[in-house]
């Protein structure tokens, strides 16, 4: 399973294993939206075990961020490797998301 959902306190944590790409982006979107509809408001997506995110994957993160904010919630990202950070910086999405070095750092204050 590329997307593992767990809880740390009141934060919903999603671990992305492998890739977030056009072929599986809808699965991530569905999992997060299900949690959002169930009343969860604090989300952390951990990319520590992620090798690649394509533009469709970036698009899904943008879409989720928007929906979570509309419900008064917050989405943070963590664990991006150097290549993934480059993609966020190139597309200026690093200005849109709160990106932490680690899961622990992201959970602080969330």
């Amino acid at each position: 399973m590329p997307f593992q959902v767990s809880k740390t306190g009141d934060v919903t944590v999603v671990d992305v294993d492998g890739q977030l790409i056009v072929g599986n982006r809808q699965e991530l979107k569905q999992k997060v939206l299900e949690e959002l509809e169930a009343g969860e408001r604090k989300f952390l997506i951990d990319f520590s075990n992620t090798g690649y995110i394509d533009s469709s994957g970036l698009g899904v993160l943008v879409s989720l961020s928007k929906k979570i904010r509309e419900k008064g919630g917050e989405l943070r990202l963590a664990g991006l490797n150097e290549d993934l950070r480059t993609l966020f910086e190139l597309t200026k999405l690093d200005t849109l998301f709160r990106i932490a070095e680690s899961r622990e750092e992201a959970l602080q204050g969330l």
């Binding site: 698009g59 928007k66 190139l90």
Partner: peptide, 22 residues
């Protein structure tokens, strides 16, 4: 341009930009 402030929240349009950037 997907990096224009008015386009940052759009879910699409980054593929060609990434190609041209890289």
């Amino acid at each position: 341009d997907p990096t224009h402030p008015g386009n940052l929240l759009k879910p699409c349009g980054r593929g060609i930009y990434l190609m041209r950037s890289l």
